[in-house]
Every structure is written in C-alpha cells, then in structure tokens.
Design a protein around this nucleic acid. Structure first.
Lengths: 153, 153
DNA sequence: TGATTGTGCGTGTTATAACACGTAATGTTC
DNA sequence: GAACATTACGTGTTATAACACGCACAATCA
C-alpha cells in the first residue's frame, strides 16, 4: 500500500520530494501515537519520557533547562512547565546551580529511574513491532538518508 | 553528523531500531517546523493547510468531517473545531448533506483555492530545500522503507 | 563600582490538542 | 412501527503548545 492510496488522494503527488515529505510525517504520526499509547497507563507523555531519558543520560550531574531543550527530539518552547510537571510527579528534582544562580539543574530521581526501567521493555518491544520488518542494512540506509535530510538545511 | 552527536547523547543507542525511531521523529520535527514557519505569514497552520489540500482534491463535491480526518497526515481528534476555524476565516464553507442529514459536507472556497495557489510555490521550494540533496532513487528507497514501516503495525 | 549588555529562566495569555460525553439522524430488529 | 443500535457530528473541559514579555543573575567595560 503506497501513501497515495493510504490517504486516498486522487491526484498523484506533485513530486517525489513531496511524497517523501508526507511519508515522513505520516510515519512519525503513527510511531508517535503508538509510543503515547504505550506510555499512557504509566502517566507520562512522549515529551516527558524524552526529557526523562535525557536526564538519565546525564546521571547525577543534572542538566539545565536549556541543555535539555537542545537535546529533545522535538522543539519544546515551554520546557519550564514541562519540568514543573515532572517535578510535581516526583520524577525529577530541581535546584539552582550555586556556581551560577541563573541555571536550574534538573536531575532524575530514583522514582524517575525506576519508571524508566519499567518502561525500557515496552519501548524495545515497540521498536521491534514497528521496525522489526526492516533489516539492519535497510535501517542503516534509512538512518543515513534521514541524517542527510536534517543536514540539508 | 549522526543523530547521536546531534542530540549530544553520551551512550550509544540501544539498537538500530531505536536510532531509526528517533531519527524519523527528529527529522519530522524539523520539516514540520519549517513548514509551519513558511505558512505562518499566511495565517494558516500546517494542520489547516493539510485539510485545505485534501478539500482541494475533493473539488466541488466536498468531504465530510470523518472523511477529512481519515486523510490527514496526523491524527486529528477535534476536526470539528479545525473546520470551524477554516470556515471562520472564509477558506471553506460547510453545509448539511440533504441526502443524509448526519453528514456535514465541507468544500473549499474560492478564497481557499487562491490561498493554496499562493502557497504552492513556497511548498515546492521547501520540499526542494530539504529533500533536494537526496537523489530520486534514494527518495524512492526512503518512501518504500517508510511505507513498509507503516504497514508493519 | 556603576552602568550596560547578555544569558537563563519564569510567567501571563491565547490557541490548539486530547478526551469524554451528549445529541441528532439513520438503520435494524422484532 | 417502536425500541434499540449505529453513525456522524458537536460541545465541555482539561492539559499542553506556542508566543511574548519580564525578571534575576552574571559578565563586561568605562
């Protein structure tokens, strides 16, 4: 089933570029939705999950608000309140950096780490479910092509 | 620059599947943001633009709310109010289907068509800017791989 | 050291997303 | 043909996204 049939569009795409553009969007919408559904019973959104994983990578050192936003998959213009929510649910804690009081360092809590551990299986299963049909070589090809697109700008 | 460096993650990805998953998300975030920025001066969002293009494809016949949602790139749980906004700005009009009064047929207006005409150049330029670095063969490969992923579920 | 610029974060506000529920029209079954 | 189910849309509400603005702290320079 190609994308044209899938979205029931009568006229063919204007170009392969356009078809690729929409293909990426539609594919991500599917994957993102599947991830959100998997996370929902655990009470976190895909954005929150992304931030938590970033903070797990930073260990005890913690990261500032701006460092986190730079590493997020999608642009987050309101990271302050995203971190507010994570702090309110006890998954992270925050503390002014004594060395430079402009920064607020966020660190993942034990509870946050426990949640991520609990979710790691589900995530891996999700990745396999959706991407398992693509060989490792093809995955490399896909990853490479997408990287080239991101560089293009 | 690979994705690992880009999001400054210390530890390598757990799997190629994970890297591909995140690559798709990050690439779409970039493309979607570029599209939104292009559209902003014209007063429409990417979602609204998507709906307008679907309605242009349907010509004078029009489409019902549910038919539109089925064809959207991303899932839209609140199409009623999306169409409200398009109607309020005069880009579409709506009318109860006399044959089956449960349906409300939306049709693109002359003003809506004019806006799309105005935007077609910008869209094409955008596609070329971001995807022009990829050969037609590679675009086919990319399109095919993404289609396989969408079928997988 | 006082003024100026830059950096990082928080807040106020509006618009949209997401979900649950309600209502109207049509189909179906006995 | 009356009750029930189904389909399609609308509405109420909460949460989040997006943007603009402002404040606190730090660095720089006169």
């Amino acid at each position: 089933m190609n994308l044209r049939d899938e979205i029931q569009q009568r006229r063919p795409f204007q170009s392969r570029e356009q078809e690729a553009f929409l293909s990426i969007g539609r594919t991500w919408a599917l994957l993102d939705h599947a991830l959100s559904e998997m996370l929902k019973p655990h009470g976190v959104t895909a954005t929150q999950y992304n931030a938590l994983r970033i903070l797990r990578g930073a260990k005890d050192v913690g990261l500032s608000r701006s460092e986190i936003t730079e590493r997020m998959v999608a642009r987050v213009p309101d990271a302050t309140r995203l971190l507010d929510r994570l702090e309110r649910t006890g998954l992270i804690d925050r503390q002014r950096d004594p060395a430079d009081r402009r920064f607020v360092k966020a660190r993942i809590t034990g509870q946050g780490l426990a949640l991520l551990d609990e979710l790691d299986d589900g995530t891996q299963t999700l990745h396999r479910e959706h991407l398992g049909c693509v060989s490792q070589e093809d995955l490399d090809t896909l990853i490479g092509l997408l990287a080239r697109i991101r560089e293009a700008v």
